[in-house]
Design a protein around this nucleic acid. Structure first.
Lengths: 349, 349
DNA sequence: GATTAGCACTCTTGTTCTTCGAGTGCCAAA
DNA sequence: TTTGGCACTCGAAGAACAAGAGTGCTAATC
């Protein structure tokens, strides 16, 4: 139907205009900027209809229209076209990421910084989801009497460690004995299948009294459990203050206040990930009210998945105002993800 | 001299009032709130004199006075009385810090969070200065062909590690050989005395070709050098948005923008530390223009030193508006430092 | 039925003007 | 040295007003 076609074009034009100008867009400006082959009165009718459909709304009677959350959703789902970055843009991002790093963690930090700088928004990087990855090595190193370092090597070369307490009089030899035994019994096991019970029953060493052994095993277990904790790194929060969307102090306060609770953000992104339907290279987009976190009603999340090897993955993305250039940001995230995956191969290759 | 006494009392009253009310204080309100045994006209004369001395200033002709940077300085140096925290306050802080952690790093993060929450300001924690600490252990662990983990144990049980590249065909045994040799040659050396040259000349192992050895040594060296990098953790930036001092968006932008450059802040705190004159439990205070960082003209730094063992120390403190309750904040920092030192002893004892 | 011109109406934004009040500086007297 | 008194300054807050952008609706037109 031609009419509906035009209505959608109008919605698209409204989103495009509003995103760039940050001003409610009226029928007249719409005509001026996009060359619709109809009059402003017709557009007014269309806009009234779009409003009835819940896709746009007006801040007050005599202002233009702005997209509603559902309007953005429609835009993102059906109207938007994602285009390639220019060569310069790609090079710019590459330059920011391509420093020689040998640890996934550093690479992700680089990528996060690059993402926040190029988008001018808040970048978000989740640490890799390690629960499903396998424990390839585990070593207990004596640091000093009573303290040991648990070093774990997981699939795809991810390394984690933690300092733990051990009985004071345990000798380095005894520790090594336990270490070897633990390593042997856990070798290749996925992290989330390791429980204190399996650990205690499978480790056998006759030379060390059970009470000591159990204490070490317990500490080792806590180290393993801690290894798969999900963290989130946010960067570029101050960028939000530059956006007119948060020029009202209250909004900025709410936003940054909520973002300071890393755990909440991490949890939410994790949830989004679970609800994901598409493949690894699809985007998860949450707009405005769709976001269940207080203070983020005027924001959108765009996240996607990066991979470390075949088994380990994590999320990367941005948090920005609803009123953002979705298309551009998506291609930026896409390219950053591409760079991450590429570099991870370098590190692990 | 009695007169000067009163003038200083006036300055003190102005600072106290301004800090609590955030409003320029005039002669009349001064009389009302503090019971000066003189008339408002007399205070006006005193204030004119204080202004001539550069200790207070007026935002505009018909407003009251506010302390100048030098006024705050005078207040902090000579007028302020630091009083003990109440039992509840101490308990509150204790509760926030006293979780069982076995790594200094985690303890410091806890402390930082506690500090930012109790002060309502931005807390600042520097990683410990490790340059002067000694290398007690160094191990190279094979992660997978071509990748090794350098684990370093420094004085006072501080552990650092880094993943490095090694030649692909190096065997675990060869790596162990190098590792033992490196450890023997560096044992007990202060980090900052270790150079690539000393490393290369002192390590002897006949079984491995020089070119391979040197590559490993170089990577080990970078790991050692990276270990003593100073980082800074800032927490509670969003608190600043709640303060009326930064209700002007521009100020908030500048502030958060600058604080996002971790390196700059770290460098500056490091500088302050160098200029320090008193002992470890004294405070370093920098007020307004004294701070050489752009965007922090309306802020003050208060930092002090925590210790890990006898040789290692670091800084902890807050960044807040010039207009803050110096006395209160100082006693809060003091108590947090006390808790850190206490807990570190627990960890290392 | 879709489109358009026209027009009355609404509501924000910016400007100007005014008033109010807190605070100052200074003078002359105590 | 202190004080009462007074003229003066300046920002904050509010009222009044005009301008402008945009809408909805109606009646005519394609």
């Amino acid at each position: 139907m031609q009419v509906n076609d035009r209505k959608m074009k109008v919605l698209q034009a409204i989103v495009d205009d509003y995103v760039t100008t940050n001003e409610p867009v009226g029928s007249k400006t719409l005509i001026e900027r996009h060359n619709f082959p109809v009059s402003s009165a017709t557009l007014r009718n269309d806009m009234a209809e779009l409003e009835r459909m819940g896709l746009i709304e007006k801040p007050h009677t005599s202002a233009g229209r702005i997209p509603s959350d559902r309007g953005y959703r429609e835009y993102v789902d059906s109207l938007m076209t994602v285009d390639q970055l220019t060569e310069e843009e790609r090079e710019d991002i590459s330059r920011r990421i391509d420093t020689t790093v040998y640890e996934a963690r550093d690479l992700l930090k680089n990528a996060s910084a690059a993402l926040s700088e190029t988008t001018g928004l808040v970048s978000l990087v989740m640490t890799p989801r390690l629960a499903g990855s396998s424990l390839l090595q585990l070593k207990l190193l004596m640091i000093e009497p009573g303290k040991a370092l648990v070093v774990m090597v997981l699939s795809a070369g991810v390394v984690k460690d933690k300092v733990v307490r051990i009985p004071n009089f345990l000798t380095p030899e005894q520790l090594k004995d336990i270490s070897d035994s633990v390593e042997k019994s856990l070798n290749g096991k996925p992290l989330d299948e390791i429980t204190l019970v399996t650990l205690a029953t499978s480790v056998k060493t006759t030379k060390i009294p059970d009470s000591l052994l159990n204490q070490v095993l317990y500490e080792t277990y806590t180290a393993i459990k801690q290894a798969d904790r999900l963290d989130v790194y946010l960067e570029g929060e101050h960028n939000m203050l530059k956006l007119p969307d948060f020029s009202e102090l209250r909004r900025a306060q709410n936003l940054l206040g909520t973002l300071s609770h890393d755990g909440m953000v991490a949890g939410y992104v994790n949830e989004i990930e679970k609800e994901k339907t598409g493949g690894d290279d699809t985007y998860m987009i949450r707009i405005g009210q769709e976001i269940a976190l207080e203070g983020l009603e005027d924001c959108s999340f765009i996240t996607t998945t990066y991979k470390i090897g075949d088994t380990i993955s994590g999320n990367i993305g941005v948090i920005g105002p609803k009123r953002m250039d979705y298309s551009k940001v998506i291609s930026q995230i896409d390219f950053v993800r591409y760079k991450i995956n590429e570099q991870i191969k370098n590190i692990n290759g």
